Simulated assay, not measured.
Amino acid sequence: MAVYTFLGAEELAGLIAHYDVGELVSAKGIAEGVSNSNWIVDTAKARFILTMYERRIELGDLPFFLGLLDHLAAKKCPVPATVHDRSGKAYRSHDGKAVALIEFLPGISPAEPTPAQARAVGAALAQIHIAAMDFGRQRENDLAPEDTLAILEKCGADALAKIDPRLPRVIDMGRNITETWPGDLPQSVIHSDLFPDNVLMMGETVSGLIDFYFACNGAMAYDLAVTHAAWCFDRTGKRFGAAIGQALVEGYETVRPLEGSERQALPILAQGACLRFVASRAEDWLDTPADALVTRKDPMDFVRRWDFYVENADKAFA
């Protein structure tokens, strides 16, 4: 989440008036994240999240993203449903940009997850994988290893070196990933971005999985590997939490046991997850406007995680 576009009180009130949610009482921009502008919106009836889609999201993908939320919410998964406007639309256009109003879910994103929380998240991830199997829409993963490698190659070694002198070596590391990437793993719709700040918790209970704007059809084990890479290290990627990783996988398997091929593939899938986040963070670092209300994220955090998975393939998912 982030704020790239300023909306005044009158504009916000005008947008909210298109929904049967009561008059606008207050709105506050949310500064985290990198892709969309977001506001917490309070009306006379309830609290919501207002999202304006800014980057990486194609208008044609919105029916997939928003329809998926409604599909999962209808199956009692802990995800926010969309709020449709008075004409029944899941999103509207404002100054050439799409906007949507999303249900607000209570909870706090864990800054330092516990094994119990990781176990609950693993189970919730498996729940949405199963629930999404009969979702009727399809969306290709446009951040597969070959796509994210292309991002790094487009950035170029010289530009990457300006971020950190050690960063250009990941281009060759990424080529190795694309050459060894596994195929034919069990598929569903996957979240593919389940960082702790995309999970809301009430104690050890998952109250919300949010930000499905990278969701796509893909290997369920890859989604678990993405979540493993996102949850099992400190914020700098320097310290691995084995107990968190074990609990995450155990929680997942209480709902959906992994096949042998999936378990065997987890180390390389985790490396592919790191490739993706190194590439997206490097691209954002180079492209984010200086005046945007957003904090750039260091791609080296995921280079260190990537190195861990390379050097400890036999221990990371033990």
Rank of each mutant, 00 (worst) to 15 (best):
D298Q: 09
R296T: 10
R304A: 14
V278I: 15
D301L: 13
V303M: 14
A279C: 08
W285T: 13
Y309C: 09
R304D: 06
L275M: 13
A290D: 12
E283Q: 12
E311N: 12
N312E: 08
F302C: 08
W306H: 14
M300L: 15
N312T: 00
R281H: 04
V294W: 02
M300F: 04
D298P: 11
Q271D: 05
D287H: 11
T295F: 04
A292P: 08
D307G: 05
A292M: 03
A292W: 08
V278H: 09
A279R: 11
L286E: 07
L286A: 09
V294P: 09
R304M: 13
P299S: 07
L293D: 11
A273P: 06
W306L: 12
D287A: 08
A290M: 12
D291P: 06
E283N: 11
V278T: 12
W285S: 09
G272A: 07
W285V: 05
N312L: 01
C274M: 13
T295S: 12
A282T: 13
F308P: 01
A270Q: 05
A292Y: 08
W306I: 00
D298T: 07
L286V: 12
V294Q: 11
M300V: 14
A279G: 06
E283V: 01
A282G: 07
K297H: 08
Y309Q: 01
R281E: 03
A292I: 03
D284T: 10
V310C: 11
Y309N: 00
V294T: 15
R281N: 06
T295N: 10
V310N: 03
L293C: 11
M300C: 10
A313C: 07
Q271K: 15
G272T: 09
L275A: 02
V278K: 10
F277I: 02
F308D: 01
T295H: 13
L293R: 15
D307T: 05
Y309L: 05
F308G: 02
L293K: 15
Q271T: 09
F277P: 02
R296Q: 10
R296F: 04
A313F: 00
V310H: 04
L293Y: 11
N312I: 00
A290P: 04
V294A: 15
D291T: 14
R281P: 10
Y309P: 00
P289W: 02
A290W: 07
V294M: 13
P289H: 09
D298E: 06
S280L: 13
K297F: 04
T295P: 00
A292E: 00
R281V: 01
D298R: 11
Q271C: 10
N312H: 15
F302G: 07
D287E: 14
E311T: 10
D287V: 07
